[in-house]
């Protein structure tokens, strides 16, 4: 119902062909389409597309350059890491040998010092032994003289007589034996 109303209204007010099929309007539409689309094509192909393509290309180049740079830096870092590992291994080896050397050296030194001290001690001991022996000998020699003197005194007191030195010595020697 509404459609027929609308169509009736259309026929009443237009009094002509269905607008999209009205040939009277074609020339104007074609002309203005050619002008506007032509201008549009020019703007697009001369200005906008080259600029857009340029932007995209610059970005593409930049990204691939950055990726190359990343690759390069990564290789550099890897090389540095390898060098570091190498140095570290070398340093460890050096440290080990230094420690070994130091141990050997200190062992040798300690051995020398001990030998020296032992020698000194042995010398001192020998000296002391010799001294003891001489003192002992001296003392033993004196024992006989003291015994003789004491005997002569005791005899003198007991018997009031006098004994010759030779008799006393003979008696002492006999008792000591």
């Amino acid at each position: 119902m509404f459609i027929t109303q609308a169509l009736a209204a259309e026929e009443a007010n237009a009094g002509g062909a269905f607008p999209p099929f009205d040939p009277a309007t074609f020339a104007s539409q074609i002309l203005w389409l050619v002008i506007t689309f032509g201008v549009f094509y020019m703007i697009m192909s001369r200005v906008i597309i080259p600029r857009l393509a340029g932007i995209l290309e610059v970005r593409h180049d930049r990204i691939s350059r950055d990726l190359d740079e990343t690759e390069r830096l990564k290789n550099e870092a890897d090389a540095a890491h390898a060098a570091y590992e190498h140095e570290l291994a070398e340093a460890k080896k050096n440290a080990h040998s230094i420690a070994l050397e130091a141990t050997e050296k200190s062992k040798a030194e300690a051995a020398t010092a001990r030998e020296k001290v032992e020698a000194e001690l042995a010398e001192k001991m020998a000296e002391a032994e010799a001294r003891i022996a001489s003192i002992k000998a001296k003392a033993m020699a004196e024992v006989g003289t003291i015994a003789n003197d004491t005997t002569s005194e005791i005899v003198k007191e007991l018997i009031g007589g006098k004994l010759t030195k030779a008799e006393i010595t003979k008696a002492v020697s006999a008792s000591v034996k």
Partner: peptide, 26 residues
């Protein structure tokens, strides 16, 4: 008849807004 019509106007508007947007955007 090559009159400048409402259709022509909207063709011009289409071209101008699109071109202006793209030129501004980039």
């Amino acid at each position: 008849d090559i009159s400048f019509t409402n259709s022509s106007l909207f063709m011009v508007v289409t071209v101008l807004t699109t071109s202006a947007f793209f030129i501004w955007a980039i």
